[in-house]
Computed example of a mutant assay.
Amino acid sequence: MSSFAAIRQLAEQAVERYERLDVLINNAGGVFSQQQLSQDGYEMTLAVNYLAPFLLTHLLLDSLRASGAGRIINVASRMQAKQLQLEALPKQDAGRYSGMGVYRQAKTALLMMTYHLANRLPEHEVTVNALHPGVIYTPQSAKSAPSFIRPLMKLVMQSPEQGAATSLYLATSPEVSQVTGNYYVGQRPVRTVPVSYDAALQQQLYEQSLVWTGLR
């Protein structure tokens, strides 16, 4: 999901295989301790957590519209940035690189994409919502902690099944079939950081993202 070519290939296969798509859950993500660049030259955290869902969503929009009630679900995070540094997003300064810092930026960008698309797409056609899945224990997440702490992590963190619950709710519940432009924790919509609602910045990010992903 860090390669635009691979994402385009995935979208082509989906369009060839299915006449329509009812649900798209954008759940790919990652945090990187050191700066890396994707095959397309973008900072890896941004590429996987934001540019990948942006590109895939746009390539599959017609298939979602064909459903007549398509649902786009973006797995975001409680980790959000107070400000979005638009000019710095594509590369990031290697000398001041912070894995969690760029992760917050990328997830905030994903929220802004969610809200912007929700305003562009009629809710009777395609809905767009985001969510925080919780703090989930997986072998990947355990690698971020010292080995002696890992058994305790499993006791206090949620299981993957629990982490999937909100995504499944947004994908299947009739309660949210016509609800769009929200961010959920559990089954409850909550507010995100103020900058994520900045309509002018949402538009700037959207226009720039079209360029970054080669859609314009």
Results as ranks from 00 to 15, higher is better:
181 G>P: 04
73 I>V: 13
105 Q>P: 09
94 A>M: 12
208 Q>W: 03
38 S>K: 05
63 S>N: 14
46 L>W: 12
144 S>V: 03
60 L>W: 03
112 M>I: 06
157 M>C: 04
183 Y>Q: 09
15 V>N: 06
59 L>D: 14
206 Y>S: 02
79 M>A: 08
89 L>C: 02
93 D>S: 13
48 V>S: 06
148 F>K: 01
198 D>K: 03
10 L>I: 11
188 R>I: 00
157 M>R: 01
213 T>I: 09
192 T>S: 10
58 H>N: 15
23 V>M: 13
92 Q>D: 03
57 T>L: 09
54 F>N: 08
176 V>P: 04
1 M>H: 03
43 E>A: 06
158 Q>A: 03
28 A>D: 12
212 W>V: 01
166 T>I: 03
100 M>C: 10
118 A>N: 14
41 G>T: 06
82 K>S: 04
119 N>K: 15
68 G>M: 09
22 D>F: 05
48 V>L: 15
127 T>M: 06
56 L>Q: 12
34 Q>D: 13
144 S>H: 14
38 S>P: 11
76 A>T: 14
206 Y>R: 02
22 D>R: 06
193 V>A: 15
213 T>Q: 08
33 S>T: 09
132 H>E: 06
82 K>N: 07
148 F>W: 15
9 Q>A: 12
94 A>R: 14
48 V>C: 12
122 P>L: 15
180 T>C: 10
3 S>I: 01
206 Y>M: 01
30 G>M: 10
115 Y>K: 08
120 R>K: 15
127 T>W: 04
117 L>G: 08
95 G>V: 08
191 R>Y: 07
41 G>N: 07
24 L>A: 10
27 N>Y: 04
166 T>W: 02
133 P>H: 04
45 T>I: 12
16 E>Q: 14
165 A>F: 00
86 L>R: 00
88 A>E: 15
196 S>K: 08
158 Q>T: 02
50 Y>A: 13
112 M>D: 07
55 L>M: 10
93 D>Q: 15
62 D>P: 00
5 A>F: 06
146 P>H: 07
77 S>W: 10
187 Q>N: 09
147 S>T: 02
144 S>P: 00
107 K>C: 13
49 N>T: 12
29 G>A: 09
174 P>V: 07
182 N>Y: 03
92 Q>P: 01
145 A>H: 04
96 R>A: 13
60 L>R: 04
16 E>Y: 02
166 T>R: 05
67 S>A: 08
175 E>A: 15
132 H>N: 08
146 P>Q: 04
131 L>M: 14
203 Q>L: 11
57 T>M: 12
53 P>K: 14
134 G>H: 05
133 P>V: 02
45 T>V: 14
96 R>Q: 14
181 G>L: 03
99 G>N: 08
46 L>I: 14
137 Y>Q: 01
84 L>V: 08
161 E>G: 00
196 S>H: 13
206 Y>C: 03
170 L>K: 07
147 S>I: 04
70 G>N: 07
213 T>Y: 11
99 G>S: 13
151 P>G: 13
180 T>V: 11
82 K>H: 08
199 A>P: 00
22 D>Q: 10
178 Q>A: 15
93 D>E: 15
17 R>K: 15
184 Y>S: 01
125 E>Y: 11
138 T>N: 01
178 Q>F: 15
185 V>L: 02
37 L>P: 00
162 Q>P: 00
140 Q>G: 09
140 Q>P: 01
83 Q>R: 13
92 Q>M: 13
127 T>Y: 04
83 Q>H: 09
61 L>Q: 02
129 N>H: 11
